[in-house]
Structure formats: structure tokens, C-alpha cells
């Protein structure tokens, strides 16, 4: 990672993508369940508000990282369920190292000089 290619806003967007992918690692889920699980698993730290989840889901679906399908529920109703694809799993694993490095550098920076990065 070099300073020239690091984009703070892009990183923030990436976090949301990774949260969705990480939540789907445990199995297929509906949109609301993804939002609920992200909030619960992070003890309320990360939240999807005002429908921000949907553009992320639809973009990930278009990019092939997740697969959306309509499942039949009781009473003839259908629900859209998202599942992680092999590409999504690979993307998640690939980005994990990147996030780790960014967090490590950030910690080093805010901890002050003299302290080694975690």
C-alpha cells in the first residue's frame, strides 16, 4: 500500500462492503437480516440507515460477489435472499490484509512516535 493510492472515502465505502460480505459468510440472508446482524455483531457500532444497504447489495450482486435470488415463503410470498459467491469470499479474504494494514498504520499514527505498530 502506498500513500498515493489510499483513498479514505473509498476505504469507508469498502468497510460497508466487507461488513456485508462478512455477514453472509455464515449463510444466505435477507436484506434486513444482514443489516440487523451487522448491527448486533458490532454491538451497534456499524449501522445501515436510510436504505444505504440496498445500493451496496445491488452493486455486489452486479459485480458477482453475492448472488440474489427470490425464495418462496409461506402464503405464496417471495423474499430476496443473498448468498456469498466464491468470488465474494475471495474478495473478502483479499481485503482483510488491506484493512489490517490500514488499521495498524492508523494505530501507529495515533499512538505517537516510539511505539511499534501492532
Amino acid at each position: 500500500m502506498t500513500d498515493e493510492n489510499f483513498d479514505v472515502q473509498g476505504f469507508a465505502r469498502d468497510i460497508h462492503v466487507l461488513l456485508v460480505l462478512a455477514t453472509l459468510r455464515n449463510g444466505p440472508k435477507h436484506g434486513y437480516q444482514i443489516a440487523l446482524d451487522v448491527e448486533t455483531d458490532s454491538n451497534g457500532l456499524f449501522q445501515f440507515r436510510h436504505g444505504t444497504l440496498y445500493p451496496i447489495l445491488h452493486r455486489l450482486e452486479a459485480e458477482g460477489f453475492i448472488d440474489g435470488s427470490w425464495s418462496k415463503e409461506g402464503g405464496g410470498r417471495r423474499k430476496k435472499v443473498y448468498a456469498l459467491t466464491a468470488g465474494g469470499r475471495a474478495h473478502l479474504e483479499g481485503r482483510r490484509a488491506h484493512v489490517g494494514e490500514v488499521v495498524s498504520r492508523l494505530l501507529h499514527l495515533i499512538s505517537g512516535p516510539g511505539e511499534a505498530p501492532a
Binding site: 436484506g31 434486513y32 443489516a35 449501522q47 445501515f48 440507515r49 436510510h50 436504505g51 444505504t52 444497504l53 440496498y54 445500493p55 445491488h58 452493486r59 452486479a62
Partner: peptide, 18 residues
């Protein structure tokens, strides 16, 4: 549920573009 899931104006613009 509406606050959490119904898109605001910025999100609607993103959905429209998509």
C-alpha cells in the same frame, strides 16, 4: 424499520444510477 430501510434522497440517487 422505515428509518433503517427506506432510502433517503442520496440513496435514491445511487439506486437510480444503478
Amino acid at each position: 424499520a422505515t428509518i433503517a430501510l427506506v432510502p433517503d434522497d442520496i440513496t435514491v440517487q445511487r439506486l437510480e444510477a444503478m
